[in-house]
């Protein structure tokens, strides 16, 4: 399945948001995810199925002023 993750095209073999985040080597507790401009609540990471062409944003907190 072809997705756009953080602005970059990416071919993945996963079905859920949770699986995508894990595949990318990220800690589920430390990120927030947006799918096609809508927030994906953490409680639904396991249940939200990804679809061809989804635009996913994965963000976290960094240093800032």
């Amino acid at each position: 399945m072809r997705l756009t993750v953080n602005g970059e095209p990416r071919e993945v073999e996963v079905e859920t948001v949770a699986a995508l985040v894990r595949t990318l080597g990220l800690d589920l507790r430390k990120v927030a995810v947006e799918r096609n401009l809508e927030i994906v609540p953490k409680s639904l990471f396991d249940r939200i199925a990804l679809a061809e062409g989804d635009r996913i944003e994965i963000v976290h907190v960094i240093g800032g002023g």
Partner: peptide, 10 residues
Amino acid sequence: VTVAMRRVNL
């Protein structure tokens, strides 16, 4: 402390 939200570096 203030913090910023940014894309994770994949």
